[in-house]
Design a protein around this nucleic acid. Structure first.
Length: 189
DNA sequence: TTATCGATGGTA
DNA sequence: ACCATCGATAAA
């Protein structure tokens, strides 16, 4: 079955513990649909943000206007602007009412198989896929969505480390909630 | 190779 | 005032 015919991952995929979803997202393929063309990229690096108790998570202050979507139903897109110039995309996890999201940090563009392009870092990834604040709330599980995720059967190895850029989060900064495909050239840092 | 810095704006 | 960043530049 060709990638473009694969169905989007269902709501049930996202409606599980955030850390498990994060690990299983490695190797999955982002499909970004425009009017005429579509872009595909394989996820190689993610971070889990666990909700209100996680002092590195935007959900740590409760359901503020920005972070409320993290408390809502799973399978939706959470986009925020960082440092005034870069967008970051996250997939909402856990059941409705419980906060949790996975930050997509890096992917490998599949549009030119012979010259795979590294999309290393959440800002670069969003720029390449043209994802911005307007896409916040998008349903990742609907067939017609501008962005969906599909499973083509790839099962990469998984390595874990501390999350990037969350030194302020005390003990939570030390948790190994960043997951990546070891040795993959598109992984950041 | 590592270190530092400026750009730029939403968020609380 | 503080960032879930990036690219350029400088130091070594």
């Amino acid at each position: 079955m060709k990638v473009e015919e694969l169905p989007p991952l269902p709501r049930s995929f996202y409606e599980r513990p955030t850390t498990l979803v994060a690990r299983e997202l490695l190797g999955k393929v982002l499909v970004r649909r425009f009017e005429q063309v579509e872009l595909r990229a394989r996820i190689v690096e993610v971070e889990a943000y666990l909700g209100e108790r996680d002092q590195a998570s935007h959900a740590r202050r409760g359901p503020t206007p920005r972070a409320a979507i993290m408390f809502g139903p799973p399978g939706r897109l959470y986009v925020y602007l960082i440092y005034g110039m870069h967008h970051c995309m996250n997939f909402v996890c856990e059941t409705d009412g419980v906060a949790g999201a996975v930050l997509i940090r890096a992917a490998a563009a599949l549009d030119d198989e012979t010259h795979p392009r590294a999309l290393s870092g959440p800002g670069k990834l969003c720029a390449h896929l043209a994802i911005a604040l307007a896409h916040k709330g998008l349903d990742l599980t609907a067939r017609e969505s501008e962005l969906v995720v599909v499973d083509d059967g790839t099962r990469p190895r998984i390595a874990a480390s501390r999350r990037v850029g969350v030194e302020y989060a005390g003990a939570w900064a030390r948790r190994r909630l960043r997951f990546y495909v070891p040795g993959h050239p598109s992984v950041s840092r």
